[in-house]
């Protein structure tokens, strides 16, 4: 019986791996860019399955929401904006061979060289990987030993928000920087507003509150089960993106200053708590034992709001248009 289960697991893994590789090939080398992006979203979802198989449900949630969902949405939005930009460019000059993402291949000889180099790279990496021992605990023991004093019972959340909280803080900094950088480059592109179909409109009306609820659940559950601020924040962003896609013109109602505050909130709260800990005599971000759980939750709430708004702002792709009077 055990052998049959093992064989089944092996077959499943083999199928999953082959699907991943095939999807990746279609994504990268397929001739139609739109199809590539759709395959990319599928690739992300299969990747999430792989994470489940690798006993990483937190990562699976993050990959499905951010890696597949939000990144896919970003790509699709970029593709449509590219096409719009190309229409403008073509209108300004005589129509030549338009290039909506058709893959133009370099010379065959050059391709052979690159194939050889990639194959060599893979070979070297594979040899290195195969030389590693089949079992290795990593830091599981240290994490398990200190989990009870960390304030949460989900080990991944403990690592993210306590043991290696400084990494997460810098990562919030990267998210913040991405919005600042995107805003510095361009005002948000004006999309042509077409009235949403009845399916999308009613679907969104039902779905948005459910997504908000799901985000709240993921945030709360993250302390003791798979979930957490990043997963919750990305579900929040998904709700915002859906609202935007269904035609709700949020841009007109963008109160800019509160928006900026929310964008900076996650990072600001994290830094503030870290510094306060230092000022009361601990080390930076060292939570007192009794308050660890509460502080982590506080940081996660602020982070969830920030992450949701940040990802939605990144989807919009630029700074809000302001009145000239300002």
């Amino acid at each position: 019986m055990d052998g049959a289960v093992n064989a089944a697991a092996w077959a499943f893994d083999a199928l999953l791996v082959l699907t991943l590789l095939w999807l990746a090939w279609r994504v990268l080398m397929g001739p139609d860019l739109f199809k590539s992006i759709v395959f990319f979203i599928a690739f992300g979802l299969v990747m999430a399955l792989a994470w489940v198989r690798l006993r990483a449900p937190d990562v699976a949630l993050a990959e499905a929401a951010i890696g597949a969902g939000l990144t896919g949405a970003l790509f699709l939005a970029a593709l449509s904006r590219l096409a719009a930009g190309e229409r403008i460019a073509n209108a300004k000059r005589p129509v030549e061979n338009s290039d909506t993402g058709k893959s133009t291949r370099p010379h065959r000889g050059v391709r052979m060289v690159f194939i050889a180099m990639s194959a060599l790279f893979f070979g070297g990496l594979a040899a290195a990987l195969l030389s590693l021992p089949a079992e290795a605990p990593g830091l599981t023991i240290q994490v398990a030993e200190n989990l009870s004093t960390s304030g949460v019972s989900n080990p991944v959340t403990a690592v993210l928000l306590n043991f290696r909280g400084y990494d997460t803080l810098l990562e919030m900094g990267v998210l913040f920087l991405a919005v600042v950088a995107a805003w510095s480059l361009t005002p948000a592109p004006k999309e042509p507003v077409s009235p949403p179909g009845i399916v999308l409109a009613s679907f969104v009306r039902v779905l948005s509150p459910m997504l908000l609820l799901a985000a709240g659940y993921l945030l709360w559950a993250g302390t003791h089960a798979p979930g957490g601020a990043f997963q919750a924040g990305s579900v929040l962003a998904a709700a915002a993106v859906l609202l935007l896609l269904s035609g709700k013109d949020m841009k007109a109602n963008w109160p800019e200053w509160p928006l900026r505050v929310v964008l900076g909130l996650g990072l600001g709260v994290f830094i503030a708590i870290g510094l306060v800990m230092m000022l009361i005599g601990h080390r930076f971000l060292e939570y007192p034992l009794d308050y660890a759980g509460d502080l982590i939750l506080l940081i996660e709430v602020a982070a969830t709001l920030s992450i949701g708004v940040t990802l939605a702002a990144l989807f919009l792709g630029g700074r809000p248009q302001r009145d000239e009077r300002k």
Binding site: L139, N146, G165, Y166
Partner: peptide
């Protein structure tokens, strides 16, 4: 040096 979060390596940064 500064052990961030109060955790020494290898657990912390």
């Amino acid at each position: 040096s500064h052990a961030l979060g109060g955790w020494a390596a290898p657990l912390g940064i």
